[in-house]
Nucleic acid binder design. Structure first.
Lengths: 230, 230
DNA sequence: CCGCTTCTTGCGTGTCACGCAATTTTGCGT
DNA sequence: ACGCAAAATTGCGTGACACGCAAGAAGCGG
């Protein structure tokens, strides 16, 4: 095993909060049972996000979400501990995909190039263009009660990206095995994700309909420049 | 106004949640009133942290905290919206000091050197050595309910550090005014703080009583190395 | 068709955030 | 020193919520 992914083997530092039926134990679609579980979970999550956007975060009750998903209020809590968790569940799932986005970059591409491209692609392929996603982003960034869940999204992104970076480092740089590859991957992922967050926040505070992409590219360029030329 | 601090002028992206008497409107100690407010706030915060450490996070009620601070349970909610906010309030205050820690570095020191030294100093001067702080750190890192508040601590650190970095950039690098200094400061601060978090997390998951400092220095070195030599 | 596992549901309970209004405390001008 | 206005503390009530528990229902293997 040696190093592994360097992310998922720690004793639960930022794990989820629910353990009930909502726990996704395997991507394998065992049977009708698993599919129904996933469907209910997604139904609840979508309903939560939709209602929160329509009425405002404080004007939606767990009861409403459960009703919209056509399950009992008690069942809601079998899947999610809080309505905030339900609202951000889709975001967490999406965040986990950034690793594959990096893995899809051509192998001959430089590491930094690949990472930057993956991040840009991830944020663009996301629904970061339509005003609906803009509003949901605003909600997540402003509401104090969603801060913890947003942090969970970011953590997921960081871990997924770190895992993919570690693979790429291991594949390309078996030569310089002196440094701790896992550490380097984690640091790199953390720095890039943090930079992306800066870009998103700045994009959010300057209302103008300027695209996110240039801000993202600028910020990433600044990261590289700042560390290279003190 | 032009650039300002680049952190505190945005329309509340990650602001606090309480607006009552607990709001610290100015550092100016106007009179007995302000001092008493601060005292009560600190009393509540200390009691919250102490009780949470003694009994465990779930075995402490807001009623207990209020009793320990000798105020009404209702008064507690005038200062803090949740007990988690109270527990982390001291951490937030401390996080805000990292800016001054950087400002105290000698001006002739290089920017990167100064930042790294400031971060190391901040984490060392903190109570990150005694086992009590270790336990509180564990609590903050593990409990899902404290994640949001921990995020607030990190955000505060990032903003404070970014402000100080911006000053240093403005003071030293008036020559290359082409780049957006505020952006560079924010990106740099975000990357460094994120890296520090990686170090702290790794230090936390590897039980051994190894000091935090070398891990921190390693991680920061990796950050610089990773961006300089792809 | 049967038994086992797993999910759903209803109910009860303890905790919590917060609006509201009465009461007390504090600051300050005179 | 006195009294008034501003502000903080407190008690009460309410709506919401997380979760344990146990009974019922539904998938699933033999």
């Amino acid at each position: 095993m040696s190093t592994g992914t360097g992310a998922a083997e720690v004793p639960e530092v930022g794990g989820p909060a629910t353990q009930g039926p909502g726990a996704v134990e395997s991507t394998h679609a065992h049977g009708l049972r698993e599919r129904k579980k996933l469907a209910t979970r997604e139904e609840l999550s979508r309903a939560a996000l939709r209602l929160a956007m329509e009425r405002g975060l404080d004007n939606v009750l767990v009861e409403d979400i459960a009703a919209a998903a056509e399950v009992s209020p008690r069942t809601f809590n079998n899947y999610f501990a809080t309505k905030y968790e339900a609202i951000c569940a889709l975001g967490v799932e999406r965040a986990a995909q950034i690793g594959d986005t990096l893995r899809r970059r051509p192998p001959e591409e430089g590491l930094w190039q690949a990472i930057a491209a993956a991040v840009v692609t991830h944020y663009e392929s996301g629904h970061f263009c339509d005003p609906a996603a803009m509003a949901s982003l605003k909600m997540v960034l402003t509401s104090p009660q969603l801060r913890g869940e947003h942090q969970r999204i970011v953590t997921t992104m960081r871990e997924a990206l770190a895992a993919a970076i570690a693979e790429r480092l291991a594949a390309a740089g078996a030569a310089c095995a002196e440094v701790d590859l896992a550490l380097r991957a984690e640091v790199l992922a953390a720095a890039v994700i943090a930079t992306a967050q800066v870009a998103v926040r700045r994009w959010f505070v300057v209302r103008p309909a300027t695209a996110l992409r240039p801000l993202l590219e600028d910020a990433l360029a600044q990261l590289q420049a700042a560390l290279r030329a003190p």
